[in-house]
């Protein structure tokens, strides 16, 4: 296990450098000038040049890249071109909000999906199964930008139970979490159903039934644990997507997270900030993947994480 961990962590550094390099190059390839956006159209050309020099944007791309990499090695992500604040500080300010939202959305998805998936698998093709499948299909098909306002219409405007948007109290978290988690819940429900149904076809289930175990026990104690491996894999991927894909939900609900920060940084061509945001998301992805792999071993003792893998 420890050698596996060391190997995976060793891959972490080149992965991050690779992501950082790609982001750096892509950002400088797309049209748009942060100085134009900062100074507007009325500024004189000399002032533009001066600011460009001040921000180091006049230097050759390779020099800028070198400066960026050396900063990265020291853990310095630079300063936001627009606010002048350290990127690390801005990320630290915004990341907890995204993490909170993603965890809430993930918890909602798991709480809904696992029982519903199990229920569907227990009675396949029954009315309850068809209803569950229909709802999960809707969950996958309905886009966040539509679901969010609909939930607001229902719970905030018609019923008056919850605030429309913003951040600051537990109530503020509910609608964004439902919106963000809906798609994950739907996918996870279908996956749980399929995985448990597959497990139910195994020989050991027949043996368990022959021993006279109840169906509930068969499903919960035998079939479900064996269905966990693909679910963990999906859960890891989906949670990564929640972190990276919260842009729309954060924009709709004015949630002050990394997704919105990234979007705003791209719009204003705030290069250091975009780089910082993407790096943070990439690091989170790598970490989640690592945790997912470790979770496999916990869920299925047959999986060994060592050099002989």
């Amino acid at each position: 296990m420890s050698s596996y961990l060391t190997k995976r962590l060793a891959f972490f550094v080149p992965t991050i450098i690779g992501v950082a390099s790609v982001v750096f190059l892509l950002l400088h390839l797309i049209p748009g000038d942060p100085v134009d956006i900062m100074l507007g159209e009325s500024a004189a050309n000399a002032d533009r040049q001066e600011l460009r020099e001040k921000l180091g944007l006049d230097r050759p791309l390779l020099v800028q890249y070198g400066t960026f990499l050396s900063g990265l090695a020291r853990g310095d992500l630079g300063e936001s071109v627009h606010s002048g604040r350290p990127v690390r500080e801005l990320l630290a300010e915004r990341f907890p909000a995204t993490l909170r939202l993603s965890l809430a959305a993930g918890a909602f998805a798991v709480l809904i999906a696992l029982p519903l998936g199990l229920l569907s698998a227990a009675r396949p093709h029954s009315p309850s199964d068809r209803i569950t499948l229909g709802i999960s299909l809707l969950g996958v098909a309905i886009p966040n930008f539509w679901l969010g306002p609909m939930l607001i219409m229902a719970f905030s405007i018609e019923l008056g139970w919850l605030p429309v948007s913003g951040n600051g109290s537990p109530q503020h978290l509910i609608l964004p979490a439902l919106t963000l988690g809906a798609s994950m819940a739907a996918i996870l429900t279908r996956m749980t159903r399929a995985a448990v149904l597959e497990s139910l076809q195994e020989e050991y289930v027949r043996s368990a039934a022959a021993k006279g175990l109840t169906r509930r026990r068969i499903i919960l104690v035998h079939a479900f644990p064996n269905a966990l491996t693909p679910l963990i894999s999906l859960l890891g991927l989906q949670f990564g997507s929640l972190l990276a894909g919260a842009v729309i939900t954060e924009t709709i609900f004015a949630w002050p997270g990394i997704g919105r920060l990234t979007l705003e940084a791209i719009q204003t061509r705030d290069y250091p900030l975009v780089q910082g945001c993407v790096l943070l998301i990439a690091m989170a992805y790598v970490l989640i993947n690592l945790l997912t792999d470790l979770a496999y071993a916990l869920a299925d003792p047959r999986i060994r994480l060592d050099d002989s893998d």
Partner: peptide
């Protein structure tokens, strides 16, 4: 159960939502 918990939570929290905003 989780659905009930969510529904209960919504009702419980609903009363004070506006005062927060």
């Amino acid at each position: 159960a989780p659905l009930l918990v969510v529904a209960w939570g919504l009702t419980l929290l609903g009363g004070c939502a506006d005062s927060v905003v």
